[in-house]
């Protein structure tokens, strides 16, 4: 008898084993549901309490959270007191800002505008021209105010949708600074290199690990063609038209 029960148990658990493994769509089994699901809201979870079913509450229209009011229009909106787009960058342009800008540009803009800003990102080819991102190397855009680029990121323009919701204000200015560096890097002239610069020695390697000279770590194929913004000005200077 016990033997039979034992054999049955083994068979049953073996069968159950097949059922336990979530074959794709079956919701995983909760073995000890104890405190797995607590009556609290986690980010982006559903809620039966609110009419729209979301636990994340959107801020009521026209309100600003405490401590989030910034009255510096130049910084927040890219406009001066009389509402004109500001010419320069309200944030001091440093190497750190350019690095940040490079990273954020490659995340948020490169899919459309390409890593060089020439408008040839993956989207253009993959969408068969349904969306045609602008060439940021265009002369008009080279000469345009910094505030305009900031405004385009924040509010979009024509067929480009606003991206402001995803990119914090300070990152938008970092991107603007990097776009400027990109534009410059594609139009440099050997005369821009300060006299006496050893171009080879100035070649940067972009990885933080390679603070000490270990180029192997830095030169991953994944590193972007336009290595660190300002520094690459010298890098691209040598081969360009002359």
């Amino acid at each position: 008898m016990t033997r039979r029960i034992f054999i049955l148990l083994v068979l049953a658990s073996a069968l159950a084993g097949c059922g336990l493994r979530p074959a794709g769509n079956t919701t995983p089994l909760q073995v000890h549901p104890d405190m797995d699901s607590q009556p609290k809201f986690k980010a982006q979870s559903a809620s039966a309490f609110f009419a729209d079913g979301r636990s994340n509450r959107p801020a009521p229209l026209g309100t600003i959270a405490q401590g989030h009011l910034n009255e510096d229009d130049g910084f927040v909106m890219g406009k001066d007191a009389s509402g004109n787009l500001i010419k320069g960058n309200p944030v001091a342009v440093t190497e750190a800002l350019l690095k940040r800008g490079q990273e954020r540009f490659n995340i948020n803009c490169a899919t459309c505008h390409g890593q060089l800003g020439d408008g040839n990102g993956a989207v253009k080819t993959r969408s068969f021209g349904a969306l045609a991102p602008a060439n940021l190397q265009d002369t008009r855009l080279r000469e345009i105010a910094d505030g305009h680029i900031f405004d385009v990121i924040t509010n979009g323009i024509r067929t480009m949708q606003p991206l402001g919701g995803n990119i914090p204000v300070s990152d938008r200015w970092a991107i603007v600074a990097y776009v400027r560096a990109l534009q410059r890097s594609q139009s440099t002239n050997i005369k821009d290199v300060p006299a006496g610069t050893d171009i080879k020695a100035a070649d940067p390697s972009s990885s933080p690990v390679s603070a000490a000279p270990s180029p192997a770590v830095g030169s991953s194929p994944a590193a972007s063609p336009a290595s660190s913004g300002a520094a690459s000005t010298t890098k691209t200077a040598a081969p360009t038209k002359k």
Partner: peptide
């Protein structure tokens, strides 16, 4: 039986068995 329940029980309820492969 007790041994089997412990061993199988552990194996069957491990996250490796229960969670991996979930693809809703």
């Amino acid at each position: 039986t007790a041994g089997a329940v412990v061993v199988l029980g552990k194996f069957l309820t491990m996250p490796e068995t229960v969670d991996v492969g979930y693809q809703p």
